[in-house]
Amino acid sequence: MKIRAKYTKLGYLKYLSHLDLIRLFNRSFTRSNIPVKYSEGFNPHPKLSLGNPLPLGIESVCEYFDLELIEPISPQEFKNKLNEILPTGIEIVESYGIDEMTPSISSTMCKSEYEILVDTLNSGDEIDYYLEINELLGLKNIDIEKKKKKGKSKITTIVNIRPFIFKLSVENICGNTIRLNTIVMTGEQGNVKPIELLEAINKNTKIRLDLDSFEAKKIETYSQEFEG
C-alpha cells in the first residue's frame, strides 16, 4: 500500500533541511510502529519520497510525502499515530491511499502560493506599491542570478523568472510592513524562491525592501494545469 500525507512545517522547524526532515520522518515511523516498507540492499531505508525541497527558513501548511507500507493501515490511524510522535510545528493534516495512477507529488505541487511579510525601507507614501508591482509584472524579462554548485565550484547563471510568476500582488500595507501574495513555479521546469522574487523587486522597481526582515509561508500548491 502507498500512502500520501500532507503536512505542515511551522515555527522554528522551518529551519530543518530536507535531509533533516527525512531523518525525522524515518525515526517517527519506527517510533509509531508504522509498517513501513524498506528498500533492499546493504543499508535498508524506508521507501519514502518527499516533494521538491522547501527553501530553508520558509513555513508551509502544504508539504507532501509518499510512503510505501508492507501492510495496509487506515489513513486516519496513520495520521493519528504519527501526530502523536511528531514535534509541534510538523503535523500531518491529511492522508490518503494512492496508487500507480495518482500523479506524483512533484507534478501536483509544481506551483506554490506564498504569503510574504516584508519591511520596506521607503519612507511614508513616497511611492505607489501597487503601481510598481504592476509595472514589474509588465516586464518581459525579469533576470536574476542563480548560483549553482557544480562539483566543487559554484557557477552563476542568469535566469529570466518572469514566465514562472503567475501572480504577485500587494495585499495590504501596515506601517512599514507589506504583505504580498504570490504564485510561482516551484518545480523542475522552473523554480522561484521568495527571496529571489524580493530581490527582483528591489532591482527592478523603486521599492526598497529590507530583505533581512522577510517572512514567508507557503499556503497552497497547484498542479501544472493551474494558470493563475
Binding site: Y12, L13, G57, G89, D212
Partner: peptide
Amino acid sequence: LDKVLKKVEKPARYIGLEEN
C-alpha cells in the same frame, strides 16, 4: 533571532525543540 537564523549556516543548530 529569526533574522539572524536566515543568514547562518545550519540554523537548526540554534533552534532546540528536538525530540525529548
